[in-house]
């Protein structure tokens, strides 16, 4: 028992490395927040492309579905390695292949790219569930008033869909935040890599445990918020609003 406490919960190890682990976690958070914002935008674009009506746009829908399926199927770790290992050799402008935007190192941006490519596909599916949960009569009413498909989407369907997907989006954020640690494999100084360095120098895992605790501090309140949002949405729908409940 003592060994467990000593290996994982050594308070002196934690306090000694607190600042370093916290800095690593802040990089993780930065990565996760930026990736989430970009993935939310990219996912909405994908979801809207997928909903375009009419026969002539069939190829667009087909390609979009293909993208979503592929990037939900590819392991994030492999995608990170594919991007970081070879992007620099592609015949594209250097600002794109070896990015140093906002003063961040290239491996930060490789991590962002991989996360956005994959989570954009996940988010597209969440948006789709939300869009499909908006009753068809809403689109019909908007169209019968003369709105175009895109006007109806923008002013009627998407605003309602977004309300329905806030809870599942927060769940996806939790998953993304945790997956961010995979970027440690390309030597980005985020929390997992910092913790591992300390672990290999000190033969003690308490710094990594501290990193895990930082995650829980963010994730546990989120879980409660999600519960409350779901309960609120359920109360709203049972009062005779929109009848569909979102399952994700």
């Amino acid at each position: 028992m003592n060994e467990i406490i000593e290996q994982y919960f050594d308070v002196s190890q934690m306090s000694k490395n607190f600042d370093e682990v916290l800095n690593g976690f802040l990089i993780t958070l930065e990565l996760a927040l930026l990736a989430t914002v970009l993935a939310l935008i990219w996912g909405l674009i994908l979801a809207l492309l997928r909903q375009l009506p009419g026969k002539p746009l069939l190829p667009v829908r087909f390609l979009t579905i293909g993208y979503i399926d592929v990037f939900r199927g590819v392991p994030l770790l492999i995608l990170i390695l594919l991007i970081s290992g070879s992007l620099a050799f592609l015949p594209l402008p250097k600002e794109l292949t070896i990015p140093h935007w906002l003063g961040k190192p290239d491996n930060f941006w490789y991590g962002i790219m991989a996360l956005v490519l994959v989570y954009g596909a996940y988010y597209a599916e969440v948006y789709r569930a939300g869009i499909e949960a908006v009753p068809g009569g809403q689109m019909e009413a908007a169209r019968s008033l003369g709105m175009s498909h895109s006007q109806a989407m923008r002013h009627v369907v998407v605003p309602q869909a977004v309300r329905k997907v806030i809870a599942p989006m927060l769940n996806e954020f939790t998953a993304l935040l945790k997956d961010t640690t995979l970027v440690s494999v390309i030597a980005l100084n985020e929390v997992a890599l910092v913790g591992r360095d300390i672990q290999s120098k000190s033969f003690n895992s308490s710094a990594l445990t501290l990193g895990a605790i930082f995650f829980l501090i963010i994730v546990l309140p989120l879980a409660r918020i999600v519960d409350r949002l779901i309960a609120r949405e359920r109360a709203r729908t049972s009062r005779g609003g929109t009848p569909e409940v979102l399952h994700h």
Partner: peptide, 28 residues
């Protein structure tokens, strides 16, 4: 033609009003 572009959608929808059984008001 193909798709809805071949119909006179704008002409019709700005001249014909439709009220539905289920109201279909925009709840937001």
């Amino acid at each position: 033609g193909t798709g809805e572009e071949s119909w006179e959608l704008n002409y019709v929808r700005q001249r014909v009003g439709l009220v539905f059984q289920q109201f279909n008001l925009f709840p937001h």
